[in-house]
């Protein structure tokens, strides 16, 4: 029997194709340290996937590569391997694997790992997102939206909102590169973001609102730091936004048909 292709792994491959631009630019402008960090993150994630494959028969997923990329790009610098291993393990296990693997998780494992590293080891400097790497987020988002694996509503609403906010002077332009990369890598994750059209628009706007709040109100915070914090809170709020959109839809249907 013939079958369609949009299984879990196809979505991961499409996401990888989109994020490839981001990864290439980041490695090009980075150095051997970046490569090492990515390799370490990928290795730890692979080991945890193997552990859950053997212990709970959870099929492995290529999504670990995306998680490794996000963690390697955005984790604080100079942490040393032990802290990094601890943070990545916490993120992968508590953020994703205990829920049943990628596709059943509630929050993005990379967001959990990064928040853990940020809150657990506050003394370390957050990386700076270089401008060319931030530009590479645009083709990544475009490929993701064109293939339908990244939710267009989130990216479009956050981008439109951000351009308005910068024009009004509410959002400092220095926050944009980090916020953009975090938006594409963490917030627009198809699994943990909102899934209804209205929910997605609210999701993008909520992320933007949190970024503006932290950029103006959180003193001495690096752009990546507050963008990751905004991403964590947004993904926790995503189910509520979906429920809100669904409640509106139910009400609309009840008004139109007299029943749902």
């Amino acid at each position: 029997m013939t079958r369609g292709l949009w299984t879990r792994e196809t979505v991961v491959i499409m996401l990888l194709a989109a994020y490839l631009q981001l990864a290439l630019f980041w490695l090009w402008f980075g150095g051997i340290e970046e490569v090492q960090r990515f390799a370490l993150a990928a290795l730890i994630l692979a080991i945890w996937q193997l552990v859950f494959l053997l212990a709970r028969a959870q099929p492995v997923s290529l999504s670990a590569v995306i998680t490794a990329l996000a963690i390697a790009m955005l984790a604080p610098e100079g942490l040393g391997p032990v802290r990094l291993i601890l943070g990545i393990s916490f993120g992968a296990v508590m953020g994703e694997l205990v829920f049943g693997g990628w596709g059943r998780n509630v929050v993005n494992p990379a967001t959990v790992a990064l928040s853990f590293l940020g809150f657990g080891f506050p003394g370390f400097a957050w990386p700076e997102i270089l401008l060319p790497v931030a530009w590479a987020a645009i083709p990544a988002a475009a490929i993701g939206i064109a293939t339908g694996v990244l939710p267009a509503g989130i990216i479009v609403s956050a981008t439109l909102g951000a351009s308005g906010a910068v024009a009004l002077g509410v959002l400092p332009a220095s926050a944009l590169p980090a916020a953009g990369v975090v938006l594409v890598l963490l917030v627009a994750d198809p699994v943990t973001s909102a899934t209804t059209m209205l929910g997605r628009w609210l999701n993008g706007l909520l992320y933007l609102a949190l970024v503006i709040l932290f950029a103006t109100g959180w003193h001495d915070a690096a752009p990546v730091q507050f963008a990751v914090a905004a991403a964590l809170l947004t993904s926790l709020a995503a189910p509520v936004l979906d429920e809100l959109a669904l409640a509106l839809w139910y009400a609309q249907r009840r008004r139109r048909h007299g029943r749902s």
């Binding site: 879990r8 959870q58 099929p59 596709g103 059943r104 339908g148 267009a152 699994v191």
Partner: peptide
């Protein structure tokens, strides 16, 4: 034991 696999929301 891990079937059915999760469904990932996508435009498709």
């Amino acid at each position: 034991s891990a079937t059915p696999k999760p469904v990932i929301p996508s435009a498709a």
